[in-house]
Structures are given as structure tokens and as C-alpha cells.
Design a protein around this nucleic acid. Structure first.
Length: 407
RNA sequence: GCCGGGAUGGGGUAGCCUGGUUCAUCCUGUGGGACUGUGGAUCCCUAGACCCGAGUUCGAAUCUCGGUCCCGGCCCCA
């Protein structure tokens, strides 16, 4: 046990872990590229105020905060939407809109770790600023859908709601907007019994509200609360071939800066932290000094997607060199190095034995290193100029000139 | 912040309930060798652990307390 260990809720990533993480990152980046979103980067720490502006003062409890040597209150970023809005207000006001931005980075929250929840975790997300509402929402939903599909997660469940629908539902029943927020946690948790009781206490007939919230399904749910614009969004999804979602009016997403469509994606079997994606339309830019810009975005829980993939036994690509070059004896080491260097310059991945092992041991090591092929160089090969190439999967051997291996 | 279960060599484990001939078992992995031109096989050798601290006791991996961390869950979830 080393005298100093990892801080609670953090993880080390071994080579195998990093290969998997980079693989997933690459898949997600590829989706972003196809949707023509451009990546931005922001600092790992920001002024604490940036996050309290968005989420209220109480989130300080859940952040890693510190006072820097200049007396400034700072916080490790707990999410990336606020920094992205800040970045927009600070450096992209003149950029042509709509802006399509994406990001990938580590975030920090001071919470009790559990399955799929860490104190340092990674978010992959995207935001559209200044798009026409329904078009932006459609694009974001299609993008999120494709991210999940591209990552290979099995059976994601996408639920789409609308805070306007929710608010109108309550307003129409006689709950003025100022009183609505206290019901949202109950709505979000689908605690319908609790909600029924709370509405009853308030003197509101709960039935019209619950009759909508308790249902999930297709667009027919929208008929009771027209005017959200969701119909157009769902039409858009149909045009783009996005299916498999359900309409769920009971998504509240906690905070009140959401202004339109909201959605969540769950992956069953992830335990208490099964939500891998959440997002919606919001109006935040003005908080950071920019003009009012309607935005839509989402954030993916990168680590949770990995947990889901690993739990499902997903086949991650195995990383090993194309070639492992083995000199039979000390006399061939120079040639082995020349061959390795030539392979590398040609763009192939190649390594050679660095432990001065005999052939038997070197081949064993080549196998455990995951090499596709071993290149054996001994007296014979030096004499003929023909290298022995052994396929490490099948065990078959062939003779080949170096030039053939460079392709 | 709260609740439950854990913590034994690099990984996985036995021993803990019924303290003391196990100053700790087995598997795997690491290193070396049997094998001086052929791998993931076999055999042998070597190295390697009781989370930290305090207490009880003649004596603690084993019992008690505190701490740390891990795995779940609650709260929260931007």
C-alpha cells in the first residue's frame, strides 16, 4: 500500500483504460464532426461566481472551491455549460450564429461516490446558440441520439419533455408560476402520490395534471397542451430518421432557466446513476453579460457510458503493435533496429525486444504485447534478405521482403 | 451529510465467528531458469501481503474504538 493514495472519488487510468476512453472519445468526436460542431476548451477552474450565477449559491456546497493567493474565490468546474456560455460572452459575440459548439473535459463535484459517480468525471457535450427554436432542438436531439448510437450503448431510453408544457399544465390548474418550483422535484422523481398530496393541500385538483404526467408515449400526449412547438420538433426527428424516444411531460430538470424542450437519456442497469445524458433549451447567455440568446444543448456522462459499455461486455478494439521484431541473437540486433525504424517511418506500429531475450521469450512477450505479427531476424534472414513473418493469431509463417511490410 | 457491506502479496483468494505450531493458503501475474532459431503449454526457483493508529490481552490478520479508502444505496444530481 503506497503511503499516498488517490484522493477519494478519483481514478487512475491504466493503459487499457485509456485506450478504451480514447476510443469512445474518438467515436463521439466523430459524431460531432459529422454534425459540424466545433470544439471549444475552457479552464479547469473558474471564478466561483460563474457557477453560482447559473445554479444558485447552494451549489458551493457541492463544489471544490478555494481562495487563490490573490484572494479570489475559485472553483473547479462542476459542469461545462456555464463555462461555454461565458466563453461565448467573452469571445464569440461577433461570430455568425447559430453557433454549434461542443466540448469534452473533466469536471469536479464534491459528492459521495457511488456507481457511475465520481468526484472527477468527464462530460462530453454540445450547445447550439441562436438557432430557431424548433430547428435547434431537433438538431440537438438528433445529435444526442447519434452519440448514443455511435458509442454502441445498448437500449438507451430517450425521454423528451417540455417545461412550457409542464408550466402550462400547472398554471391551467391554478398554480401561479411563482409557486410552481416547489412541485418540480416531485414531478422529476415521478412521486405521483406525493404530488397528488401536495397539490391537494394547495387546493388544486390534481387529476388533470396527473392524467398527463402519469402517461408516457407518443406525440398524442402533446394534444392536451398545444403550443410548445414540440410537434414540429418531433416532425423534424421523423425526417431525420430518429425514432425510439418517448414523450414524457414529467421532466423538470431541476432548475428554472430551462425554457423549452428538455430531455434525458437513461441506460437501464446502471443502478442509481442511470442517466447518461440530459439537456434542453435554456436562456443563460444574458446572465454572463451577453445579449439574450436562446440555446439548446446537452451533456453526456462520459464515464457512465463507459460503465454501461463495460457492463454489457462491449468489444473494445485491442491495441497492440502491428509488428514485433525479434532478433535471434545479438548479431541481428542492429538489423532489427533498422527494420523497426523503417516500419515506423512507413507509419506502421512496431517495436523490438528491449530486454535482450532469447527467441522463445521474445515471442512470448510479443504475444502478450498483442502484436499482430512477429518479424524474426536471424542468420538466415540476414543472408537471404527475406524476413520471417509469423502471424501471432494463426501461427502461420511466411517469408517477406521488408518493402512488402511497409505498405 | 446519512445507511449497509468491505479492506490479506500486482490481480483474485483461504484463514477472522471459535485470539496463540500458518510470523499466513492457493490461483494468476512479475523476474530468473529448464529450452543456446520459434509464442500464449509444462516444471523448478526467486521476490512479493495482513489499510493506518490506538486499545484489550502473556499473545491479534483474527476482538474493541477512531480514521482513511473501496463497493452499493439514500440525499443531491447543475
Amino acid at each position: 500500500m503506497p503511503p499516498v493514495q488517490r484522493p477519494k472519488g478519483t481514478r487512475d487510468f491504466l493503459p487499457r483504460d485509456m485506450e478504451r476512453r480514447r476510443w469512445l472519445e474518438g467515436r463521439l468526436r466523430e459524431v460531432m464532426r459529422r454534425f459540424a460542431f466545433r470544439e471549444v476548451g475552457t479552464p479547469a477552474f473558474e471564478h466561483t461566481e460563474l457557477f453560482t450565477l447559473r445554479s444558485g449559491p447552494s451549489i458551493v456546497e457541492d463544489m471544490y472551491t478555494f481562495t487563490d493567493k490573490g484572494g479570489r474565490e475559485m472553483a473547479l468546474r462542476p459542469e461545462l455549460t456555464a463555462p461555454t456560455m461565458r466563453l461565448y460572452a467573452e469571445g464569440l459575440l461577433g461570430a455568425p450564429r447559430p453557433l454549434k459548439l461542443c466540448y469534452f473535459g473533466n469536471c469536479f463535484r464534491y459528492e459521495q461516490p457511488q456507481k457511475g459517480r465520481y468526484r472527477e468525471f468527464w462530460q462530453f457535450g454540445a450547445e447550439i446558440l441562436g438557432a430557431e427554436r424548433a430547428s435547434g432542438e431537433t438538431e440537438i436531439l438528433a445529435l444526442a441520439h447519434e452519440c448514443l448510437r455511435g458509442s454502441g450503448v445498448r437500449d438507451p431510453v430517450m425521454r423528451i419533455g417540455h417545461v412550457g408544457v409542464l408550466k402550462r399544465l400547472l398554471s391551467d390548474s391554478g398554480v401561479p408560476p411563482g409557486e410552481q418550483p416547489r412541485f418540480w422535484p416531485l414531478v422529476d422523481k415521478k412521486d405521483f402520490e406525493g404530488l397528488r398530496a401536495a397539490l391537494g393541500e394547495r387546493g388544486v385538483d390534481p387529476d388533470p395534471i396527473l392524467s398527463v404526467l402519469e402517461r408516457r408515449g407518443g406525440r398524442e400526449l402533446l394534444e392536451k397542451v398545444p403550443g410548445s412547438g414540440l410537434e414540429e420538433v418531433l416532425d423534424g426527428l421523423e425526417s431525420m430518421g430518429v425514432t425510439g424516444y418517448t414523450v414524457d411531460p414529467g421532466i423538470a430538470r431541476g432548475l428554472d432557466y430551462y425554457t423549452g424542450m428538455v430531455f434525458e437519456i437513461d441506460v437501464p442497469g446502471l443502478g442509481a446513476e442511470k442517466q447518461v445524458c440530459g439537456g434542453g433549451s435554456y436562456s443563460l447567455a444574458e446572465l454572463f453579460g451577453a445579449g439574450k440568446v436562446e440555446s439548446t444543448g446537452f451533456a453526456l456522462g462520459f464515464d457512465r457510458i463507459l460503465v454501461a459499455l463495460e457492463a454489457a461486455g462491449a468489444a473494445f478494439p485491442e491495441a497492440g503493435p502491428d509488428f514485433f521484431v525479434v532478433p535471434v541473437g545479438p548479431a541481428e540486433r542492429g538489423e532489427a533496429r533498422r527494420v523497426v525504424a523503417a516500419l515506423r517511418r512507413a507509419g506502421r506500429s512496431a517495436e523490438t525486444d528491449l530486454a535482450a531475450r532469447n527467441l522463445s521469450k521474445a515471442l512470448k512477450h510479443a504475444a502478450s504485447a498483442g502484436a499482430s505479427e512477429a518479424v524474426i531476424i536471424g542468420e538466415d534472414e540476414l543472408g537471404t534478405g527475406l524476413l520471417t513473418v509469423k502471424n501471432m493469431g494463426s501461427g502461420e509463417q511466411r517469408k517477406a521482403r521488408l518493402e512488402e511490410l511497409l505498405k
